[in-house]
Measured scan of single mutants.
Amino acid sequence: MQRVNMIMAESPGLITICLLGYLLSAECTVFLDHENANKILNRPKRYNSGKLEEFVQGNLERECMEEKCSFEEAREVFENTERTTEFWKQYVDGDQCESNPCLNGGSCKDDINSYECWCPFGFEGKNCELDVTCNIKNGRCEQFCKNSADNKVVCSCTEGYRLAENQKSCEPAVPFPCGRVSVSQTSKLTRAETVFPDVDYVNSTEAETILDNITQSTQSFNDFTRVVGGEDAKPGQFPWQVVLNGKVDAFCGGSIVNEKWIVTAAHCVETGVKITVVAGEHNIEETEHTEQKRNVIRIIPHHNYNAAINKYNHDIALLELDEPLVLNSYVTPICIADKEYTNIFLKFGSGYVSGWGRVFHKGRSALVLQYLRVPLVDRATCLRSTKFTIYNNMFCAGFHEGGRDSCQGDSGGPHVTEVEGTSFLTGIISWGEECAMKGKYGIYTKVSRYVNWIKEKTKLT
């Protein structure tokens, strides 16, 4: 034993070699072989497995989906700052455009905790909710729209109204504003409101030439003092309507412009014939205590009207009353817009006519005020429907199939267009061939041609 100890002390290297040989010859039971080890760690190889990531292109799944990435790591994937920024906006807080917040056709661009709407022409605001041009839906104005110097929408209202708090709607500024039905039992019968379409306001006024200088022999019209197929109006439903009495009662109609003036057809009036105007009328054979009678003290036909040349060209006249009318729910003026808007309103496509005229061709006159909704007829169809001249200051309205029309005794009465609950004068009943005849239409004086003249002559002093 002493000898062994001496050998170990003198030859430590020998001992180490012996131990190493023993270990190498022993069977290893701690580690699995290569094949079995792979069965336990069965993990798919990654895209760049075996390579240094710093030297390969980034992978979106590896960089940002398996674990949260930084902007720089995302930049490695896209290799483009702009594309990385677009991805980053949604990656950080989701897609803010998912709810489609942009209105009126706006395009949404996502941002971090926010979004941006790219608005089409005519709109602005956070969600493109603000109209900035009158060309689109009248700028959301209830009545009139004008573009300011910086191309912003400025709404306005006709006389007797003021802008509401929203700067879009119009509200009454006087007790009985024009064009409004205020009798409670008839307010439910107000005709369907007309909503502004998209309009090209630059070209809204037709490029028409008034044929002022045409000389033409007097034409022989049949029954051209021209509501057939209409309905009984309720008291106060058309408070701007008046009836004219002269040699015979209810020979023509008219509309209240203001307390002192009536507008009617020029062919209705004769110099030297006494005319009485009755406002607030409903049943011409009954006294309903809503009527107001006034005498006409002055007749002003349009300066281009000449019955000797043509009885229905420039067929418009103004009547001055001896005493002002007292405005109330049964006696209310009709609204008159400017030339541009009167023309736009007419193009809405349908209007209402009213009167006490004959209820059928050569038949009896109506006792109760009649009204009828009539569609506008395109000019080409209008011209083809008659052998008589249709001037540019006239328009056609009615039904091709016949059966409904204005008729004798309705002449001078109103053709009105309702705009968001307020009625505007767009025409004056003038003439036609018979009444409600198939293929024939009622012919009306186009008020847009005469609004400046009306307003100039009827100013209240």
Rank of each mutant, 00 (worst) to 15 (best):
G160N: 07
S156M: 09
V331R: 01
K89H: 07
G355H: 11
S182K: 04
K339P: 15
P301N: 09
C396E: 01
I309C: 13
C108D: 01
M8S: 13
S406C: 13
G398S: 08
T287D: 10
G50V: 06
K126E: 12
I443P: 03
S220G: 09
T458G: 02
K152I: 11
N5Y: 08
V227A: 12
L24Q: 01
W240G: 00
R75L: 06
K109R: 10
R449K: 08
E35W: 04
I15T: 03
E142H: 04
F123Q: 14
I15R: 03
C407M: 13
E116F: 13
T209D: 10
I15V: 05
T186N: 06
I309R: 12
L327Q: 03
E72N: 15
E285R: 11
A9D: 03
E124H: 13
E171V: 05
L32S: 10
E285W: 11
T85E: 07
E323S: 14
R191L: 10
L318N: 01
E82P: 12
F78S: 15
E10F: 13
T16G: 07
P12C: 09
V447N: 01
K168W: 13
S184H: 06
Q219L: 03
S430M: 06
L23Y: 05
F221E: 10
G272N: 12
E61F: 07
Y341A: 12
F87I: 15
K446V: 02
I262K: 00
R294A: 02
Q96V: 13
H314V: 03
G432F: 05
G413D: 07
C157R: 00
L321D: 01
K339G: 04
D95Y: 10
F348W: 10
F424G: 00
K274P: 08
F144C: 00
V248E: 11
T16M: 12
V195W: 12
G106I: 02
L325P: 00
Y91H: 14
D95I: 10
G179V: 01
G94M: 06
V153Q: 10
P44F: 03
C117W: 01
N127C: 09
H302V: 01
I210L: 10
S354E: 03
L20C: 04
G363V: 06
L244W: 01
S255D: 01
S350L: 13
R83W: 04
V56R: 06
L163K: 03
P333I: 01
V257I: 06
K311Q: 03
G413S: 14
L325N: 00
K339M: 14
R43H: 04
T215K: 06
V153M: 11
I390T: 13
A233M: 08
I275H: 05
Q408H: 14
N283L: 11
R364P: 14
L425N: 01
Q408P: 10
N310T: 10
I262W: 00
M8A: 12
G13W: 03
R298V: 02
D249K: 12
L383G: 14
G427Y: 00
G246F: 06
E281H: 10
E433M: 09
N113G: 06
S448L: 02
T218K: 05
K274C: 03
V242W: 01
G105A: 14
S430A: 10
N393G: 10
V227E: 07
G21K: 02
F251E: 07
V228F: 06
E171N: 06
I17H: 01
G409V: 03
N5D: 04
C170I: 01
W88M: 15
R384S: 08
F31M: 14
E286C: 09
N135S: 11
K247A: 11
T458C: 11
I336H: 01
V77H: 14
K39T: 11
V326T: 04
T133R: 05
L372G: 15
V451T: 03
C155S: 00
T386A: 11
E456P: 02
S114L: 13
R226E: 07
K455T: 13
H289P: 10
R46A: 15
S204I: 04
F360M: 13
A366C: 14
I7N: 06
C28Q: 02
L60P: 15
S169A: 11
F424R: 00
K446I: 01
L319A: 06
D93C: 08
H361M: 13
G50M: 09
P101N: 15
G280R: 02
R298Q: 05
D223M: 11
S406E: 14
F224S: 07
Y450N: 02
E53D: 06
V30S: 15
L346W: 14
G355C: 12
N151Y: 06
I40N: 15
I443G: 03
T381M: 14
F424D: 01
G94D: 08
E286F: 10
W431H: 05
L460Y: 15
E86Y: 14
T209L: 09
Y22S: 05
T386Y: 09
Q216A: 09
G13E: 02
I214S: 08
P239I: 00
H361A: 03
A337F: 01
K188P: 14
K387V: 11
F123T: 10
R358Q: 06
D150I: 08
F395D: 00
F196P: 10
T389G: 14
L41Q: 15
G236M: 08
V181H: 07
F121N: 07
Y444L: 15
C134T: 02
A9G: 14
A265Y: 01
T381V: 15
N135A: 14
L60H: 15
E27P: 01
T190N: 07
V248I: 09
R162K: 08
L32C: 06
F348K: 03
E72R: 15
E10A: 14
G254N: 00
E193Q: 03
S182F: 05
L460A: 08
A279E: 00
E98I: 09
A317V: 04
T332L: 10
V56P: 14
I344N: 04
K39S: 09
G50A: 11
E286Y: 05
F251K: 05
I214T: 11
F71T: 15
V195N: 08
E72L: 15
Y444V: 15
S354I: 15
L32R: 07
F87C: 06
D93L: 12
A37L: 10
S187C: 12
S217E: 08
N452C: 06
Q143S: 00
T186Q: 09
P333T: 02
D111A: 07
C335H: 02
N104Q: 14
P44G: 08
Y115E: 14
G21H: 05
K109E: 08
I7Q: 09
S448A: 14
N5Q: 09
N147E: 11
V263G: 00
F176C: 03
A337T: 03
L60D: 15
F55N: 11
D131E: 12
Y161G: 00
F238S: 04
H267S: 11
N258R: 02
A265T: 03
T264V: 04
H303W: 07
A37I: 15
T276S: 05
C396R: 02
V30F: 11
V377H: 03
G230W: 13
Y201H: 10
L24F: 11
T29V: 14
Y47S: 12
G363N: 09
P172E: 05
E270I: 05
W240R: 01
K339V: 05
N80M: 06
T194S: 09
V377G: 03
N222Q: 07
L24R: 01
Y444C: 03
F71R: 15
E270F: 05
D111T: 06
N38E: 13
T276Q: 05
G403V: 07
V243C: 04
E116A: 13
S99Q: 15
Y441K: 03
T190F: 10
L130A: 06
C18T: 03
N328S: 14
Y341H: 07
K45T: 04
Y91Q: 15
L372V: 12
C170L: 00
S49P: 10
V451L: 03
P12A: 13
T190H: 09
N295L: 06
K168Y: 10
E129T: 05
N283Q: 10
V377E: 02
N452K: 11
E67V: 03
I316M: 03
G403D: 15
V199N: 12
V447R: 01
E259S: 06
D111Y: 13
Q408S: 14
